[in-house]
Design a protein around this nucleic acid. Structure first.
Lengths: 195, 195, 195, 195
DNA sequence: AATGAATGAGTTTTCATTCAT
DNA sequence: GATGAATGAAAACTCATTCAT
């Protein structure tokens, strides 16, 4: 009986290695060789499991989406009210697992890819739509529908913008102040909705 | 008799070609050959004028910054009050010349580059600092200093976020709604500062 | 309890798979993986039984020769006169088992291999010599010796040429007309020998 | 003014090198590197001028066809009668330029390629059709139409078969005896047509 | 001022082959 | 008897860059 069950282990290792390699070599300069070396395997194995460089990177993007999705869903589950659900979405986007330099770099690469690579574009659209629909749904419980739409758009833009700014800021990103900024934005909109 | 004075013409043509090529091939896949062909010259000439691919791309980034700077300065000149100056900065960022698919793609590429290439990082930092200091300076005239800082941060993030979201949205980007969103954000902060 | 006696079964399966794979992938592009998959086993097993790709292909060539040999011998056994023996050789070369697209492809590959690979060359020479000596021997009973040699050469060339032409013709090869053509050639030579 | 006009020179050199390399390395094992080295240029240049290995090899096949065509046409021009035209076609196929080991190897490779590669197949069909129509046309002047068709088929098969046999024979191929064999075949058919 | 010619260095990809189980 | 895991070696192909003219 041959050794078996290595596939998922290798796949995970290669995806992690891809994220880290993107971070310190820059997305455009990443080579399969670098990723494989970091994962402790040969280039050939990376191709064996993923088929091609493009597919490995696409899987990496999918992994980012999945992880973010999981983080947010976990927090949503602990939220009781619409207001809490909104906070869950916001804080989920800046959770420690997500808001790390390497992850941020990979996300940025993802955005760039999404401009030309159809698969990345598709994935990105799923993410954007989900984020917005999550926000809109709960905001509608707290303010008039038309205001909710604009607020969701603004909050989503703020989240994306803060990510990017932190990606390029010096020093470690501070999720706390990012969360406060978005929460404050939402809060002021809710207040206005009440008037 | 060799034509003279071609240098600035060629340089501009190559930079424009670079922006367009980045847009439709994707930043990572751009080659000097593609850019040169689009500009109607040989690869050798691109190297002759810019020295290397990296320098051509760096010049392209500088061009983006310069153009945005010029657009904003032009609007600032027509602004009389701090409030108008803030609007000038906001609308300048979404001016028709800036807010075009090709330009947006190039900017995004610029962000990615800034993560690893030192020169791009330096340039990006200049841009980010200028944007924020412009906003902070005028916001201080309209609200307490500490609130001004947070507001500037938020407005800057909103601008960046909206750019990116529009970069990946389907259809033509609509600067009007982007401007309204940021203006509304600033306005609500000013209102709060007054209380 | 491990199954026993699998070796001959696997070997036959792999050789058949090799012939078919050569046919539809092209000899130069055949990989051990493709052959093994077609035979329903792992690549490692192909190596286990044949030692190397080259040896598997060499065995395949040997198989082709052996099959053709068997087919012809079977027909020779039923032949009573020299003239019948000649017909047996001719029709044996175009027997249904031999004259099938996949077999023809493999034979052609064999010819190409014979140009550079020593083992294939050796095998091919055995085939060519046997075909010719078979023909010459019986032709001598029907015509002068020197005419017999030339006739054998011509008949052999015709057989090879018809094979190749049918290999590349559209539609299913028609052994009947091929056999008639060669028979007719031999017949006219015999007639001339009589004059 | 830059150095110019190298392209046709390089293309010819690379095609010649391809033919020779196919001959002594075997068609399946030929690499672009080997061909380029033989032509005295870099691999990159071979790709520059031909786009890909496949296209270089396809051009090589086209070259073989063109050369054979030229040789035959030149001889046809000097032929006055249908009978002479037939001889021109036959001897053209065994002309010294054509009937050389390296050329024969390349032709054989061509046949194999034609089994799977569509472009090679197309080219081969052109060749086969041209050879046969040339023969049929002139044979009809010398014998009944239905006999002419069969004779052309037989002569074409003989030519192909002799090529292949000589390709694998030891020593230098002897065009003289090949020509005699085919001429004799045609002659006997003409004689029969007269009866 | 401008370019065709040419290449070295590097990247993705493929594959025969080995090995532990 | 059989295979999943893994890799080294080599191939095709790309591209920034240089140079002679």
């Amino acid at each position: 009986m041959p050794k078996t069950g290595m596939e998922p282990i290798r796949r995970r290792a290669l995806i992690s290695a891809a994220i880290e390699t993107i971070h310190d070599r820059g997305f455009c300069d990443v080579t399969v060789g670098q990723i494989a070396r970091r994962a402790g395997v040969s280039t050939a194995l990376a191709h064996h499991y993923f088929g091609s460089k493009d597919q490995l990177l696409a899987e990496t993007m999918r992994h980012l989406l999945r992880e973010l999705g999981r983080t947010i869903v976990a927090r949503l589950r602990r939220a009781a009210t619409p207001r809490q659900r909104i906070s869950a979405v916001i804080s989920g986007n800046f959770a420690p697992t997500q808001f790390r330099p390497a992850t941020i770099s990979a996300w940025l690469a993802f955005y760039v890819q999404a401009q030309t690579a159809p698969e990345a574009r598709r994935l990105h659209r799923i993410y954007a739509r989900r984020l917005k629909s999550n926000l809109v749904h709960d905001l509608k419980a707290l303010m008039p529908d038309d205001l909710a739409a604009g607020t969701a758009e603004g909050a989503a833009a703020l989240i994306d913008g803060l990510w990017i700014r932190y990606a390029l800021a010096d020093g470690t990103p501070d999720p706390g102040s990012a969360i406060r900024l978005v929460e404050d934005y939402v809060e002021s909109k809710i207040a206005r909705g009440r008037q």
